[in-house]
Structure formats: C-alpha cells, structure tokens
Amino acid sequence: MLAIDGLAKRFGTATALDGVTFEVRPGEVFGFVGGNGAGKTTTMRIVLGVLEPDAGTISWHGAPLDPALRRRIGYLPEERGLYPRMRVTEQLVYLARLRGLRRSAAVAAAERWTERVGLGERRDDEVQKLSLGNQQRVQLCAALVHDPDVLVLDEPFSGLDPTAVDTLAGVLREQAAAGTPVIFSSHQLELVERLCDRVGIISAGRMVAVGTVGELRAGERTRYDVTGPPPGWADGLDGVRVVGTDGDRTRVELGPGTDDQQLLGAALAAGPVHAFGRHLPPLTELYRDAVADRSGTGSAVVPS
C-alpha cells in the first residue's frame, strides 16, 4: 500500500500542500482530482522524490519510500518528457535499461507494450513524427516498460481520442487486477467516476473528500427529482427546499426527518407525476459541492 500522510509544502509564502493524507491500496485505481493549482502535481512530485516535503511521510508497505523503492514506480508526467528524435523502441529500451532491465528484456518489453497500446506499426518511427495522442501512448509505455510496482500518472488521458482512452483505461484496469496500485489525476470527471475504485478530491492544498463515489454520495444531502407537477408546487412545503428546476422537473432537498412519501403525496396532489426518484449526483456534482463547502460558498445545483 502506498500511504501519503500529512504532506505539507510551501513555496515562499504560498501554501501548496496542507496536511495531505490518503492511501492507494494494492489492486486499486485511485482518482486524484482537483482544480489547477490544487496540489495534485506537487503531491506526485513529492512521491517521486523530485520535491522534498516540508512535513509528512510517504511509505510503501509500511516502509519509508527510499530511492530504491522509487525506481519501482512507473510515472507519466503531464508535460511531454520524450526525446523527439529518438525512435519509439530505441527510447523505451533506453528508459527500461535505466531502470535496470537487461537489453533483451527491455526490447521484449518495448515490443509488448507498443503492441498493447496500438503502436506496433509505429515503433520504428521517431517520436516527433507521431501525433500528440500517440506520443501520449509512448509515454504510457515508458511508465510500464520496467514492470513497476506502483503507477503514478499525471493527466494520462490528455489529448487522447475515445479509442485511445478506452485502450488506456483497459491497461490501467489490467494493472490493477494484477495487484498494482494505480493513482492518476484527471480533469475528466466522468472518466474518473467510471474507472476508479476510489476518489480523492483536493482543493487549495487540502484533501476535502476521499472515498468511493457511493461513499461520497452518502455524505450528500438527500435530494429528489420530481417530473410532472407544475413549477412552484413544492414552494412552502415543510422540510423541503427547492434547489433547481428545469421545465416540469423539480429538484428538492429534504430536511432531517422529512418523509419522501409525504413529498410524493404533495407532488401527486399538485398534478400528474411522470417520474419520482432519489437524485444520485455524478462525481462532477460531488466535486463541485466538496470544493464549494471547503471555500465556504455553499452549493448551487442545477438539475442535469
């Protein structure tokens, strides 16, 4: 298990990280989400040893993460980190040998991974002749070519078309199924929700929520979507707050002790009800609420 505990980091007077704590378990895909400048990349760079924290620890299976253990991490940076004039196989073999593989094993791994991500026919091309999406595939191969114990990926889906997204998602799930902890950051929250076992939300250098999407939903307010009755039917109902409308659909929030059957009865009394159900917020909405609660601005929900 990769455990991050109490990370703090300042750059001059700016606080980048403030007590960041979470863990990534074996066989788990962990989505690390937050706005620009929230602290995602800083956290990853500390895990890799590129930056030193001002406070906090990082451990792997209970042992401090030292340089030898960091060599077993597969890393994909947000920015392109490839040599543009090197051929794809040449580059991957070079990077694998830096991680300790013999040349024969490095060549075999480069061929296996380029085939897996759909670049088998381009492995003899110079990197600079590839599209940005294919360069991203090469970077993924570079993170995997030495058979890492942990995967740390910073915006791995950036610039990928839907087919490449599916390929990469499949690779990450395969790695997790083999027991590898996978942590990746992304602004594509729909993808994070579909792919990840758990999610961590960071805002202004602090973790504001960690858990499965179901666990994050359990901490949300109880909301219902009701379709059919005319607008205004729920105004003034005890224990009910209207949080959004969209045509004949109304989203309401129930206060403590308010019975959803009473809500349904009120809706039926106002007009025909075509749909009635608990609102299960997507990760996009959970993220907005968590960040808004952290900033003290409250939440504003528009049915979607």
Rank of each mutant, 00 (worst) to 15 (best):
V127L: 15
S131M: 08
R97W: 10
V152T: 10
L98I: 14
C141L: 02
T89L: 13
G120V: 06
E115I: 06
V152F: 09
S131D: 02
L153V: 01
R102F: 00
A143R: 05
R123I: 01
A68V: 14
V127Q: 03
L98Y: 05
V182Y: 14
V165C: 06
P156A: 07
S131Y: 02
V165S: 10
V152P: 03
P181D: 10
G159H: 08
P64H: 09
A108Y: 02
A109E: 11
A63C: 08
L119F: 07
L92G: 01
L132M: 13
D166E: 14
P148W: 05
A169Q: 11
D166I: 05
E155T: 04
L119D: 03
L69Q: 15
Y94F: 15
P84I: 07
V127W: 01
R116E: 15
L69M: 15
L132A: 13
P181I: 11
V150K: 03
P77W: 13
L92T: 00
L132V: 08
D149C: 00
F157N: 06
V127F: 00
R80T: 11
K129M: 12
D66E: 09
L76E: 06
L69E: 14
G133H: 10
G118R: 06
R97Y: 11
A169W: 01
L153Q: 08
T180Y: 02
W60K: 05
S158I: 04
K129G: 15
A176I: 10
W60L: 14
W60T: 06
S104D: 15
P64G: 08
D149H: 13
E111M: 07
L76Q: 10
V138P: 06
V117I: 14
G179P: 03
D149N: 12
L65G: 01
V88P: 00
E126F: 08
R80H: 08
T57A: 14
R102K: 13
R97L: 05
E155W: 09
E78N: 01
H146Q: 06
A178H: 11
L101F: 02
A110L: 01
A164F: 10
I58S: 08
Q175R: 15
Q91W: 15
G118E: 02
N134S: 13
L69Y: 11
E90Q: 11
D166F: 03
Q91V: 00
